[in-house]
Amino acid sequence: MVNAAQQIGYARVSTQDQDLEQQRLALGRIGCQRIFEEKVSGAKRDRPELGRLLDHLRPGDVLTVTRLDRLARSTTDLLHIAERLKTVGADLRSLAEPWADTTSPAGRMVLTIFSGIADFERSLISERTSAGRAVAREKGVRFGPKPVLTPEQIVHAIQLIGEGQSVSNIARLLGVHRATLYRALPQ
Results as ranks from 00 to 15, higher is better:
180 T>N: 13
128 R>C: 09
144 G>I: 06
46 D>R: 13
180 T>E: 09
23 Q>N: 03
13 V>R: 12
94 S>W: 02
54 L>R: 11
18 Q>H: 07
122 R>Q: 10
105 P>V: 11
124 L>N: 13
28 G>L: 12
77 D>L: 08
114 F>K: 07
132 G>H: 02
38 E>D: 11
168 S>A: 15
113 I>H: 07
27 L>W: 09
89 G>V: 08
165 Q>C: 09
151 P>L: 05
64 T>Y: 07
124 L>H: 10
109 M>I: 05
102 T>H: 03
112 T>V: 05
174 L>W: 00
3 N>H: 07
113 I>L: 14
133 R>L: 15
8 I>A: 07
168 S>N: 12
20 L>G: 03
80 H>F: 04
30 I>R: 14
31 G>K: 11
104 S>I: 03
82 A>Y: 05
121 E>K: 06
40 V>L: 14
73 R>M: 12
6 Q>E: 14
137 R>I: 09
18 Q>W: 00
122 R>W: 08
185 L>C: 02
79 L>Q: 12
107 G>D: 09
145 P>L: 10
153 Q>M: 03
29 R>N: 13
153 Q>C: 00
20 L>C: 03
9 G>K: 13
90 A>G: 02
127 E>Q: 12
38 E>S: 14
86 K>F: 00
115 S>A: 15
79 L>I: 15
166 S>Y: 10
45 R>N: 13
139 K>M: 12
76 T>A: 13
178 R>K: 14
84 R>N: 11
13 V>S: 10
178 R>Q: 13
178 R>E: 13
185 L>T: 03
96 A>S: 15
19 D>G: 02
133 R>D: 02
88 V>P: 03
57 L>C: 05
54 L>H: 04
86 K>Q: 14
126 S>R: 15
117 I>P: 07
186 P>H: 07
8 I>Y: 08
33 Q>A: 15
101 D>C: 10
47 R>T: 07
124 L>A: 09
156 H>D: 14
46 D>L: 10
64 T>P: 04
40 V>K: 13
89 G>W: 01
7 Q>N: 07
30 I>S: 08
50 L>M: 11
22 Q>G: 00
147 P>L: 06
116 G>A: 15
